[in-house]
Write a protein that binds this DNA or RNA. Structure first.
Lengths: 174, 174
DNA sequence: TCCAGATGGTTAGCCACCAAATCATCGACC
DNA sequence: GGTCGATGATTTGGTGGCTAACCATCTGGA
């Protein structure tokens, strides 16, 4: 009866790879993987939370952006292109988001006063009611998520993330 | 002729929202949004980089995991469930990934010696050749991505991310 | 020994997102 | 004033991921 060998850890496998590929920067890869995994987990949690209200990240982002703009600039609507830019999705995706939001009675499309290629998007009363009902809870959740970090740590985290983002162009290079 | 009013900044809209919803923790939300945006950008860059070699994040993760395991434990294969766990995807998704990897001649499925419900997954020589060709370049890229952070900053970033991840369960709560 | 529940892989159907091609309109220039 | 490139929205077709329901196999207890 043979005894099974001790399991190889993730760290050991990484060390071996690093020996074989000298270009591998162990701490950099470790950090990158940590970041990608957390992103995934956070993104999933965010989606699950919004799903209770029949929303996705994209739908929610659109509604909140419309809400905050209309609060600040009294009823101003936004164009699909502005919303796509703000939500970091393609314009094609925005068309789809707006279609379903309109079907659900949460937004309306209105003629753009100056340019007939475009239209402006506005929240319906139903959407305002939905947001006013859910945002307190949602913001409470986000506050709970971030509560393990004190003010200084939050600043530091944002700074470090900003540094990583400066590296992205280099990542994309030939 | 009227002069258009100054544009409202993202920060101003956030301030207004915070006045309206006292549950809104401005610095927390700001940090959360920064994190989600960077994740998105990084994820896109990662995908674009892998796409040059006909891979996606999921496909790549599977291949590298098989590679490093077979290096460390001389030819050991992994089961779909182990791979799904390692790659943070559902088992259903893993089935799909393995189907296309097999169709592309990058992995083979072999009978599991002890349990007929399972099989083990192995890299083909073609996959080894692909990885050996692309990994030096890939790891060089990751190193470049992380080069704006020094060693201490990387440690700090990982620690802060770990703290955020402790907040995720609270985020999911009722 | 045999059956019930656990476990592993697959299937079917859904959703969010994207790029590329398409169509309408705008605006600038001859 | 007409034409042509730019711009905005949409359509089409494809990818990657998920859950839920399914079937096969294993395993532990009556």
């Amino acid at each position: 009866m043979s005894v099974s060998p001790p399991p190889i850890t993730r760290f050991e496998r990484l060390q071996r790879l690093a020996r074989r590929f000298p270009q591998l920067d162990t701490s950099g890869l470790e950090t990158c993987i940590t970041l990608l995994r957390l992103s995934n987990d956070l993104s999933d949690a965010y989606d699950a939370s919004l799903a209770r209200h029949g929303l996705s990240k994209g739908r929610f982002t659109v509604l909140v952006r419309l809400f905050s703009t209309s609060e600040a600039e009294d009823g101003r609507g936004l164009t699909p292109a502005e919303l796509a830019e703000n939500s970091c999705v393609s314009r094609a995706t925005m068309t789809g988001l707006l279609d379903t939001l309109e079907k659900d009675g949460l937004i309306s499309r209105e003629d753009h006063p100056e340019d007939r290629r475009m239209y402006t998007v506005h929240l319906t009363p139903k959407a305002r009611q939905l947001l006013e009902g859910m945002l307190p809870e949602h913001y409470r959740r986000v506050a709970a998520l971030m509560s393990p970090l004190n003010e200084q740590e939050r600043v530091t985290l944002r700074e470090l993330l900003a540094k990583v983002s400066t590296g992205i162009p280099a990542f994309r290079e030939p």
